[in-house]
Design a binder for these strands. Sequence first.
DNA 1: CCAAAAGTGTTGCACCTACACCCATGT
DNA 2: ACATGGGTGTAGGTGCAACACTTTTGG
Lengths: 226, 226
Amino acid sequence: MTSSLGSTDAIRVAVSTVIFSLRSCADGDRLMLPLVRRTRDPHLDMWALPGGWLDLSENLDAAASRTLIETTALKPSHLEQLYTFGDVDRSPTRVISVVYWAMLRSDHVDAHRAVADAPENVEWFDVDALPALAFDHTSIVEYALWRLRNKVGYSTIAAGLLPDEFTLTELREVYETVLGRRLDPSNFRRLLEGAEELVATDSFRTGKHRPARLYRHEALSVQSDR
Amino acid sequence: MTSSLGSTDAIRVAVSTVIFSLRSCADGDRLMLPLVRRTRDPHLDMWALPGGWLDLSENLDAAASRTLIETTALKPSHLEQLYTFGDVDRSPTRVISVVYWAMLRSDHVDAHRAVADAPENVEWFDVDALPALAFDHTSIVEYALWRLRNKVGYSTIAAGLLPDEFTLTELREVYETVLGRRLDPSNFRRLLEGAEELVATDSFRTGKHRPARLYRHEALSVQSDR
DNA sequence: CCAAAAGTGTTGCACCTACACCCATGT
DNA sequence: ACATGGGTGTAGGTGCAACACTTTTGG
């Protein structure tokens, strides 16, 4: 309340984002996230979460979007504040990091990775095989994973990892990848068919077997969360 | 990532706390929170959440505890980060507010209010009858209330509003006050008797009728949340 | 016709809700 | 004794997990 107004000059505010996405693999999909190799001295050459300094005339959400575009060149399908980390010893200088987490559609990831002008020092890592990270970013990623797995249980955000249209089986496989366990196809269907955010289209995905109805993820304006 | 390192000097980091507590009233208890009358110019004389500037060598949690002690002179039974608010227009100068929420034991509140050296410009308000608040503090309180009511559903934090020992009926009344609806006594008992954090003591509260067993809230070291 | 995925039906269990009922105490 | 809150028992409902079953396609 009182005190030290003058001593705050040295505190800087950063915004970082944990960006989740999927990559098809031999044994199903893998949950991946992009990391940036540091080019400056605190933890030079180590991998870190994408992020940057908060601009003076920029909302927090906008800063998260901007830094995301700077690294992935794409807008995420879901962006949400995670937590603010501000321990004194988390960096040599005093830095408060407002951390967001995001979901990227898999088709956007593929497009991004194919493009040559992708930032050179960005690389995608399997969440189960991360390198040592700079600062406290390892525990930040763990917390983001916990939140993702938690939220998947009571919402349809996981659809944000898929393209615009998808089958229920594809969506179930996403859930299985995120949660790390198999789900019963019939029960999964009933659970998600009841969800308001999921709308059935008239199209079908034809494949080796019986065609599967395509669904679309309807972003409802109602937000229960912040 | 790149850009404007120099422009961040003007961003200041504040820490505020929404402190919930109970006060006995004619018709049961009321949920209250302390507000501070502003003594400076942005929103001079309006009521605001207790808080202050983050010190350079102080963790976020520590800053929340400190500002809490400065206004209530007591440690809360539960203190948890709520959200970080950083919209550009929420204050005339650029201020990022890391907001916490806390629960105060009712006996501590009573003790505090009896003491004369309580800060002069602090007053307790019913959450359902708040005055106009400074900055975006009204929406912050609303969000904190939402989180409190939400968390009460799957944890025993509400016991943090009661003294060390309490009967299940007292705890149920707290839940009823927080949630704003009546709960079935017998079902409430079974639900909370299963909770690990609640331990039965050998003492009983003697009153007008059959003595009620006293319970104690065991703060488990496991924390599912952050 | 067969394999395999899409989609439906059914049963059983766990949990929650409502409410009837007994227990212990002060007056 | 009786009013009142403390505490237990129980029946009905809901929702989910497990799994048997039918449908529809490609080969």
